[in-house]
Design a protein around this nucleic acid. Sequence first.
DNA 1: AATGAATGAGAGTTCATTCAT
DNA 2: AATGAATGAACTCTCATTCAT
Lengths: 216, 216, 216, 216
Amino acid sequence: MPRPRTEDKRKRILEAAVKVFARKGYFAARVSEIARKAGVADGTIYLYFRSKEDILVKLFDEVMAEHVQQMREALRGLATTPARLRAIAERHLRVLGANRDLAVVFQVELRQSTRFMERFTASWLQDYFALLNEVMEEGQGNGSLREDLNRKVATKVFFGALDEMVTSWIIGGKGYDLGQLAIPVVDLFLQGAGAPGRIARVRPALAGAAPGRGGK
Amino acid sequence: MPRPRTEDKRKRILEAAVKVFARKGYFAARVSEIARKAGVADGTIYLYFRSKEDILVKLFDEVMAEHVQQMREALRGLATTPARLRAIAERHLRVLGANRDLAVVFQVELRQSTRFMERFTASWLQDYFALLNEVMEEGQGNGSLREDLNRKVATKVFFGALDEMVTSWIIGGKGYDLGQLAIPVVDLFLQGAGAPGRIARVRPALAGAAPGRGGK
Amino acid sequence: MPRPRTEDKRKRILEAAVKVFARKGYFAARVSEIARKAGVADGTIYLYFRSKEDILVKLFDEVMAEHVQQMREALRGLATTPARLRAIAERHLRVLGANRDLAVVFQVELRQSTRFMERFTASWLQDYFALLNEVMEEGQGNGSLREDLNRKVATKVFFGALDEMVTSWIIGGKGYDLGQLAIPVVDLFLQGAGAPGRIARVRPALAGAAPGRGGK
Amino acid sequence: MPRPRTEDKRKRILEAAVKVFARKGYFAARVSEIARKAGVADGTIYLYFRSKEDILVKLFDEVMAEHVQQMREALRGLATTPARLRAIAERHLRVLGANRDLAVVFQVELRQSTRFMERFTASWLQDYFALLNEVMEEGQGNGSLREDLNRKVATKVFFGALDEMVTSWIIGGKGYDLGQLAIPVVDLFLQGAGAPGRIARVRPALAGAAPGRGGK
DNA sequence: AATGAATGAGAGTTCATTCAT
DNA sequence: AATGAATGAACTCTCATTCAT
């Protein structure tokens, strides 16, 4: 068992945890198996993490810290709202599509309990929804999105659509490229499914909308 | 100790289970607590269910059997595709919006593990996606939906949007009426978020789409 | 399921119990399985027996009551000590050899615990040893057995030999006729294994012998 | 809480198990009681043994491994067949007579079920019977045992006699010295109970004998 | 007498976490 | 820092027994 003395131990533990959580599920995952896969002793895990739960939480925080950061940067260079939405969708799908185990942890294991869900929402998702809201608000300002767009609903629909793409991809197990779905999803989001000219806008899209996760 | 002979025992156990699963999470839920809440002895549970997991599975199957059935019937009387989509959305949101504990079980506990997820997908979700697909295919036939609509993507977007509405509602904990979101969600799905006339349809919504859960 | 109203129910329960105890072992035997095999309801068993243990105890008592009785009668007609010992051995081996399940219960299940063993010894075995002692004492009196025979040891050796024949027969599973072993066992007991004339009786067979089960 | 590092833990657990099994019986014995008596935590037992049953099985194997070995060695120095049979009997009785709890486990607990019995027979008893067979065959060869001796029957009678001595000693609870019974038992086995010169050998000791446990 | 649904006490085993080395 | 043996709390499920019918 190679035991590099460099302190990538923490990283090795996190990587091992992703695999074990993804394959066994959080509850069925054994700390000792994570340790074995990381090439460390059981007790060593507790030098880096407070508890089994802490591994999951830190895993999430670390991945998120990296990608939310990158996402904001990626948007800087993009001029139009559709381009920005596409970039967001693509990054969302590519990050999770690149590592099925990580995707399983994010789509399944992290939603183990309302407790995790709330944490999940409170930290990263909040930011994500705020970002979507900004982009859409700007889109409304520059005329690329409907003025009457209910952004609360729209941000959730957008996120929900992407989220379901990822979940379907995991469950389906068919191994297609998740990232390529960004364009059709965003196109559908922008254009709608209705035939052009056919949908009379009988009523403005609900005025009094609901707050929700991500809502401020 | 009263020995109620009525055979609502099974039902009482399921109702108690919904509450306990919703509040504690499936793993942390104790069979003895379900029994206590149902007013039966621990052992009695095992006269009606094979195991703790069986309670969750049966819970799901029973609720689904009822609502998938009702949903198909509800669609019979509806003429237009938008009306049908709205009916589907409304039922989806109202059923879960009417019982927060049940919603938690469906949104959170049932997704505990890929094992449950797969079961979930294989049984009910499959039907649900098939139904959405039919309605959309018909919509394309009668001209109310775009001919170039990628139904694989569209059904997932539609489902994902509703699913996220429910999850947000649970997590947000703000207690608004979930059912009222059906109309804005469906409207957004049909019209799209883009300003009318502004989105040049640069490319047809992706031809070669991905299969996935619900895909046939 | 035929349910003869005659009150052979008790007998049917005992017969079912022999089978179930023999096949599963006393601890693994389920009262409900005995009930099923006997064609009665679980609760009915408790109208005839106080407990699961009571079934085993009564089973033993009933079989014994019958055979100890018969054994004493059978000896009446026999003149010589060797004939009497052969009759005892033959009955012992034939009774158990005729019903493997019963033999299993007597050889294995009834020796589950020192508690059963002590009961077993206190009731029937005591009588059995007393009978053997009588026959041997008489044999010493009429000159057919050695005068210096230590009867305490001899009765145990005789019983132990038969007991081992039965156990071997059960475990071996070869299905030969157990009863036919009576003659060689008794012959060996009487003649000894030593070559005639070769064994110098260096010392009288232990004067101060041990008391033991069956011993008074 | 002292954390004794010495690795006699395994031995302490086995010793505790002998006591608890002997006093309570295998089924009624509680793992937690064995742990308490051994001065270890419940879980520690499972670092050394796979299960409660494994404790019993290992207990048996370990004791046997030691004594079968010693028995063969002890026979090397002995010239005559009677001396060898006496040595076997003495060792058998002394080993079990030295530790009543161990004797209870071997005579009673290990015969809990046909499953244990078969294991018991298949492993050690087989060897024991083979050894007895060898010694007796040799005795026939050197003229110290009858030529017509049915060794199948004789080995079982010999073993059964010793086995019953042990069982009687346990049940009787009178605390005499078990080892001293070796001589009278072996003498009886060799000389027989019949008065010399009185038993006309009417028929040769059964030719077609039964196979059985220990039989090849 | 008979039923069988209901009871509820009870225990083997696992595994996250600790801590002496 | 690292180890891994030891800990002990915790929980599902079984099944002998009861008792309302």
